[in-house]
């Protein structure tokens, strides 16, 4: 039986630099997996390869048995994969609500003609898009800020908004890129709860990139650790915690944090 999601022997070079080398791992359906590693280990490159921003030089990326490599970014989304961004990519000038509606409309269709005339299904479907978006905003705790411009939100809220926007695509696989970056300890705590809850409630398979060891250890039962573009360890938090390679990779880094 094929795995739900499987990366096999993926390699990516930029110029002469090998950003990812022969990376392989697989994720079972419904798992909450952490991808950790020091800064510059190649974690975000993995997300960019999965979502089609870059094409790998070698290897295949299988999702439910289909190779994602030949697909364009928007086609990857259509297969049921959604992601957030390390350096937030919200629509800054639009309101919080509009940001979510922009992706909530993905599965709620009406025709172009209905949009131009505001007849037919337009009213009903727009209402659906609106309600779905408001539900998601309540879910991440931003309902009271719906009409505010997204760019004016505090940093931690912008990260939550990105999660809501990704969830609005009804993904099966959710990729979270450093969701805790720039957050204080208290915010990280509530984010942990949020990630765990949405993972369960939305029936998701989730892959979280994080370089904070603690966050990954706390919420992810399955952890992959990478350094210099290659996998150095994989297993449960306990196994990872005592893995000599992981300790070596993080030694020195932790003091800086």
């Amino acid at each position: 039986m094929t795995a739900f999601f499987e990366l096999s022997n993926v390699t990516k070079n930029f110029g002469g630099v090998q950003a990812v080398s022969s990376m392989s791992f697989s994720i079972a359906k419904g798992e909450l997996t952490g991808l950790m590693g020091p800064n510059g280990a190649g974690k975000t490159t993995i997300f960019n390869l999965i979502s089609g921003v870059y094409d790998p030089d070698e290897g295949s990326i299988l999702f439910k048995g289909e190779d994602l490599v030949p697909l364009k970014t928007y086609q990857v989304t259509s297969r049921g994969i959604a992601r957030t961004f390390q350096n937030l990519r919200l629509f800054q000038r639009s309101t919080v609500l509009e940001n979510v509606m922009t992706s909530a409309q993905y599965h709620i269709h009406y025709t172009f003609a209905e949009g131009m005339t505001h007849l037919g299904r337009w009213r009903r479907k727009e209402k659906e898009i609106h309600e779905k978006s408001m539900d998601l905003l309540s879910r991440v705790g931003l309902a009271d800020r719906a009409e505010q411009a997204a760019g004016t939100l505090p940093y931690g809220h912008q990260r939550r908004l990105e999660i809501a926007r990704a969830l609005a695509l009804d993904p099966e696989l959710l990729l979270l890129d450093e969701p805790a970056a720039g957050m204080n300890a208290e915010e990280v705590g509530s984010l942990n709860v949020l990630i765990r809850d949405i993972h369960r409630d939305f029936n998701l398979t989730t892959l979280v990139i994080e370089h904070h060891m603690d966050l990954v250890m706390e919420i992810c039962p399955h952890i992959i650790c990478m350094n210099f573009g290659a996998k150095i360890a994989e297993g449960t938090p306990d196994e990872i915690q005592n893995h000599p390679e992981v300790l070596r990779a993080y030694l020195g880094e932790e003091e800086v944090e």
Binding site: V76, T77, A82, S103
Partner: peptide, 8 residues
């Protein structure tokens, strides 16, 4: 880029 990753 964000729009293309939102499926547009």
């Amino acid at each position: 880029i964000a729009s293309s990753l939102l499926g547009f």
